[in-house]
Amino acid sequence: MERATIEAIRVHAARDYPREACGLVVVVRGRERYVPCRNSASGTEHFILPAEDYAAAEDLGEVVAVVHSHPDYPAAPSEADLVSCEASGLSWHILSWPADDLRTIQPSGYQAPLVGRTFAHGVLDCYTLVRDWYQRERGIVLKDFPRHDEWWNQGEDLYLQHYAEAGFERISQDQPERPGDVILMQLRAKVANHAAVYLGDGLMLHHLHGRLSSRDVYGGYWQEITRCVLRYQG
């Protein structure tokens, strides 16, 4: 990147500190330009770059890179950064601030493991895990759905609103039978807000907020908070 671009990124990181700053590098009429964007994430653990900000940058020129800061944290990419970089198909520049360490990553074919991945809502969460399992184990690409932070506390019932659109139908209240059945659970929320894939032999694959994804025995507490079981029909 050009020096002026890097300096603009530093200014933005300092202005938004201690929250993550995010923006885009755009080529406008043959010249590089940094376009600062809003971070619409509700917390401080990650960033969400609004679609309208991305579209506005595209109106200026060609988007060539995504930029964000790591406040009080090394510039080494998180697992969510690696996954998001792959999805974007663009270079990602990460600035540790105020340490002022800049690192760049490129798409390289990275895939987060099904077990042991870190949690980042909207990037690596329980529905992402369901989608990844279906793609890797069944070769089925499930539709993704936009989801805001804390949607389960804001009157949105995303799982029950969209499961049919994703190709599933409800088969029972709390009895998964076949590998691939999806278990919807209501975990300290007003709506079903947690999903797991049934693996067979009494095991499920799921990803809780703040924990690594894991295989666990289905039953007991998990069965108590189950609201329905879905099966993919295509």
Rank of each mutant, 00 (worst) to 15 (best):
D16Q: 09
P18Q: 02
V28K: 01
V28M: 01
E32G: 08
R33I: 06
V35E: 06
C37I: 03
H46V: 05
F47N: 01
A57C: 04
A57Q: 09
E62S: 15
V63A: 14
P71I: 15
A75F: 06
A80I: 07
A80F: 09
G89D: 02
S91N: 15
I94W: 11
L95N: 10
L95P: 14
D100H: 08
R103T: 05
T104D: 15
I105Q: 11
Y110P: 02
Q111E: 14
Q111T: 14
P113G: 07
P113V: 09
V115G: 09
R117P: 08
V123G: 07
V123R: 15
L124M: 11
Y127N: 12
R138F: 08
L142C: 13
K143Q: 06
H148M: 15
W151Q: 09
Y159W: 13
Q161D: 07
A166Y: 08
G167F: 12
S172M: 08
D174M: 11
E177V: 03
R178K: 11
V182N: 07
V182H: 00
A195P: 08
V197H: 08
G200I: 10
H206A: 00
L208W: 14
H209P: 10
S214H: 04
R215T: 04
G219S: 02
E224S: 10
C228F: 02
R231I: 07
Y232N: 13
